[in-house]
Design a protein around this nucleic acid. Structure first.
Length: 108
DNA sequence: GGGGTGACCCAGT
DNA sequence: TACTGGGCCACCC
């Protein structure tokens, strides 16, 4: 898979995350590992930082439920609107964690 | 080609 | 809960 295609795959997957649900960087990387072969949470984070502006980036959080650094207030506003399960100021991963049943590309 | 960095993750204290 | 160390991969200079 080309780098450009991988970026689009990440963005496409993030767009598939339903309102009120979230995915971790690791989960995104793991989900795309099937179609990409090699991935890592670091790569997903970097892509989100560069191209995340075009997708619901706030639905992608760290493993402990923290939103993107520098955009916490922005993210929390969305969580309140979408009714995302919160826990002590952070996203409740046990309730909000979401995983795609089928991938945006390669699957159907 | 080599070294530093980053919207990460896991394990230990 | 907060802090620290190691692993990981691609990007940038």
């Amino acid at each position: 898979m080309e780098a450009e295609a991988y970026v689009e795959a990440v963005l496409a997957l993030v767009e598939r995350i339903p309102p009120g649900r979230v995915m971790t960087y690791g989960a995104v990387a793991d989900a795309l590992a099937e179609v990409s072969g090699r991935t890592s949470p670091r790569r997903v984070g970097t892509i989100m930082a560069r191209y995340g502006g075009a997708v619901p980036w706030y639905r992608v959080v760290a493993a402990d439920g923290r939103p993107a650094p520098g955009h916490e207030a922005r993210a929390r506003a969305h969580y309140a609107r979408e009714g995302t399960p919160m826990r002590n100021g952070k996203v409740d991963m046990r309730a909000a964690a979401w995983y795609p049943e089928s991938l945006p590309s390669g699957g159907g």
